[in-house]
């Protein structure tokens, strides 16, 4: 909550200089990731959120919801992109555990630094380094399952590239992320545990732009199993719609596998973002 207020005030401060950043080509920044970073839906990408180029500041807000068999995740937040160099992000996650009629909540504050390149123009892929600091507000269940911490910091390196006209004239985008995380189920079940203390894992995304407004793609995120309860890798298939530079919407089919030993967690994901 404090972080949210801080974010809002920074934002209001910046308002006079934010005159609709729109220097980037439509759809190239991607969408908003559930932990708040610019990315795909479940993987943070090397691109920074929003349409800012070197001399612009962009702000974005988003809300996403994922409904699978026995759980529902709501994640809302915001990003500010300073000069296409630094992205600062915030997300508030609420995770409804339907069989227990309870909600787990956490906050994620993120930062991403573009180290090299441009998604579209550079010879080599765009490269960014990011951190996500997560604070679980409801740690009781996590500790009961054997988690060690109620806070954790993920660090990731992401590379992405758009290949113009690469597949029969259609644009092809890929992103590969290597993330160090000790989180259990993104942190909603705490950090670390009896079986491990986190590890380095790959996360992959690929998409094709069907035209300038629609992209279809898929993502895969490898996760650790630190607790005695089973945790699965995540996978999704998505369609993203970019009607203009101020709004986009993503719908995805999610396969989250087993969460806390409850199998068959697949379902739908819907996300909307606004940019200025």
């Amino acid at each position: 909550m404090k972080a949210m207020k801080r974010l809002l005030s920074t934002w209001l401060l910046c308002m006079p200089c934010v005159c609709f950043a729109n220097g980037k080509i439509l759809a190239t920044p991607g969408v908003s990731q559930v932990e708040g970073a610019g990315g795909g839906g479940i993987v943070p990408w090397a691109q920074l959120a929003g349409y800012a180029t070197e001399d612009e500041i962009a702000g974005s807000v988003f809300c996403s919801t994922a409904q699978v068999q026995d759980f529902r995740l709501k994640s809302c937040g915001a990003q500010i992109n300073f000069y296409d160099r630094i992205e600062v992000s915030y997300a508030k996650q609420d995770f409804d555990v339907e069989p227990l009629s309870l909600t787990l909540s956490q906050e994620v504050v993120g930062m991403k630094l573009r180290l090299y390149g441009d998604l579209v123009y550079s010879d080599w892929p765009q490269l960014s380094l990011g951190v996500q600091h997560k604070m679980l507000e409801t740690p009781d269940i996590a500790f009961a399952l054997g988690a060690k911490e109620d806070k954790g910091t993920d660090v990731y390196l992401a590379a992405s590239k758009l290949h113009l006209g690469a597949i029969a004239g259609y644009n092809f985008l890929w992103n590969a992320t290597l993330r160090y995380s000790s989180a259990n189920e993104m942190g909603l079940l705490g950090y670390g545990g009896t079986e491990g203390n986190g590890a380095l894992h790959p996360e992959l995304s690929a998409a094709i732009l069907l035209n300038k407004h629609f992209a279809i793609g898929t993502e895969y995120r490898v996760k650790s199993e630190n607790l005695a309860v089973k945790e699965s890798n995540w996978h999704d298939v998505f369609v993203a719609w970019f009607p203009n530079k101020h709004f986009n919407m993503t719908v995805a089919y999610l396969d989250l596998g087993t969460i806390a030993n409850i199998d068959g967690q697949h379902g739908w994901y819907v996300s909307m973002s606004g940019q200025f």
Partner: peptide, 26 residues
């Protein structure tokens, strides 16, 4: 960078209005 992208957008618009298909545009 923004100017360059703007020219790319104008070119895309020109290609659309002269009937050049999306794959050929790319």
């Amino acid at each position: 960078e923004g100017d360059f992208n703007r020219v790319v957008e104008l070119l895309i618009r020109a290609m659309e209005s002269t009937g050049i298909s999306y794959p050929v545009q790319n």
